[in-house]
Write a protein that binds this DNA or RNA. Structure first.
Lengths: 119, 119
DNA sequence: CCGTATCCTGCGAGATACTG
DNA sequence: CAGTATCTCGCAGGATACGG
């Protein structure tokens, strides 16, 4: 059974919550980075390779922002060559449902587009 | 019971789906507009009033984009003063889960921040 | 009421080159 | 490997004014 309380009906306060969420997850890359990290601790280059099109500069910048929001944990191993690992937090994990929903909707949307252009 | 298949684990194809979704919902206002409309058919000014800080220019622009993606339906009543109504589509409604998840996470995040600054 | 037309600004983001 | 440093540009998005 589906929990029918899962509606999008939003009070003003709810809207604020959504706004807050969007503010933290804004931009083209943040969610993609979080998805990569949620599947396990990863190194810088591993993340970069997983996300098509992202530049080192952007990845570095976004990771830093996410870190200040406590959405990723950065761990440096003092070795040569340098090793840095990024991992998720409990707080990140709670994004599961957002990502899942977004993924499902993405597929739906894709289908819709295909049908629409299916003249 | 919760469906445990709702994990964020994403294949490359899944990542594409998320990217597609983000592309359509990008920007500061789209989701907020959709939330407003999902709660019922609304007129231009009604939406504007509900979304704090949005300008007429932005609302107009975003609504147009959403319309081309078939996420809102625009209906014009030829009267004076003019009346224009915007409503959701079935496709928009399927965003329910995304919005709900985002809302829930927004609240969680807010709490987290409050605790963090609670020195 | 329901927008459009301009003008303007900052920042998101790519390209490239370089360091420890 | 894991980044930083510049430079550059487009465009998201704000302010203001006007039109049917």
């Amino acid at each position: 059974m589906i929990d029918l309380s899962q509606t999008a009906s939003c009070s003003t306060k709810d809207l604020r919550a959504v706004r807050d969420a969007l503010e933290v997850l804004n931009g083209k890359w943040k969610l993609q980075i979080l998805i990569a990290i949620l599947s396990g601790t990863k190194r810088f280059k591993e993340i970069a390779r997983e996300i098509e099109g992202i530049s080192d500069r952007m990845l570095s910048k976004e990771l830093k922002e996410l870190e200040t929001h406590h959405l990723v944990v950065r761990k440096v191993y003092d070795s040569f060559p340098p090793v840095v690992e990024y991992s998720a937090t409990a707080h990140t994990s709670s994004l599961d449902k957002v990502i899942y929903a977004l993924k499902e909707w993405g597929y739906l949307h894709r289908e819709k587009i295909i049908h629409a252009s299916d003249v």
